[in-house]
């Protein structure tokens, strides 16, 4: 009933059309890299900021999620906006089920933001020298689950924004309040992964970060479920 073949078709189509133009890929990648550069310029100027390890880690955690949020807001709305702009939504609505369209696009968006996170996270942490006490496994788990939640909410909000005539900035506006619970947990978890609030060797980072991972996982599950249910009504209008 989940229609693996249809989801696979939408997912592949998203990747293929993106790969031939690389518009979302290049714009978001440059956005992420530019953001890291600005953060490094702001915090590594002369005279250097005298931050201790926990402060640097906290600043890095906050900046990382601000960066991922705005990177997502520049690229993840395209999935639905393009269908409406180019009129392909019509043919898609004639042939595809709501669940297949949403899941296929969500998976492609998740892949995009995860790919960007894989580039941006180590860059930012090295640039701010915040990785001295890093727990790489926890960091990976937090970033991955957070990105899945961002992809879910932004794919859904992107479907709404696609209906509006003035789209610029609207995706960020719509998704920010809905993403707030994800951000507090993700930032807290990232700080734990960077060694804030955990004493090395005594309390393993996972003990601190487990609650955050649970919040992030439940956020992902709830947002995917809610988006799937509501998108069905929008698609079969």
């Amino acid at each position: 009933m989940w229609g693996v073949r249809e989801i696979h078709a939408v997912f592949l189509k998203e990747l293929r059309t993106e790969w031939r133009t690389k518009v979302a890929l290049s714009s978001t990648a440059l956005f992420a890299i530019g953001g890291v550069t600005l953060a490094a310029l702001a915090l590594r100027g002369n005279p250097p900021l005298a931050l201790d390890d926990p402060s640097r880690a906290s600043v890095a955690a906050g900046l990382l999620w601000i960066l991922l949020f705005f990177t997502g807001a520049t690229g993840l709305g395209r999935a639905f906006a393009l269908e409406e702009e180019r009129g392909t939504a019509l043919a898609l609505r004639l042939t595809a089920r709501a669940s297949a369209v949403w899941i296929g696009k969500f998976l492609a968006n998740a892949l995009l933001i995860l790919g960007l996170a894989i580039i941006a996270t180590p860059m930012l942490i090295t640039a701010l020298d915040a990785g001295r006490n890093v727990n790489a496994l926890l960091l990976t788990c937090v970033v991955a689950s957070g990105c899945i939640g961002i992809a879910a909410t932004m794919t859904f909000a992107g479907a709404l924004v696609a209906q509006a005539s003035a789209k610029s900035g609207l995706l960020a506006t719509l998704s920010l309040p809905a993403l707030a619970p994800l951000f507090v947990a993700a930032i807290h978890g990232t700080r734990a992964a960077l060694g804030v609030g955990t004493r090395l060797g005594i309390a393993p980072a996972f003990q601190t970060g487990m609650g955050d991972l649970q919040v992030l996982a439940s956020y992902a599950v709830i947002s995917v479920t809610a988006a799937l249910m509501l998108f069905d009504y929008l698609w079969n209008d």
Binding site: L160, I222, D237
Partner: peptide, 16 residues
């Protein structure tokens, strides 16, 4: 329809 979808989605996420 679009606004309703948003307000319901937000309504589901805010208790969280």
């Amino acid at each position: 329809a679009t606004a309703a979808a948003y307000i319901v989605f937000a309504g589901v996420m805010t208790p969280l």
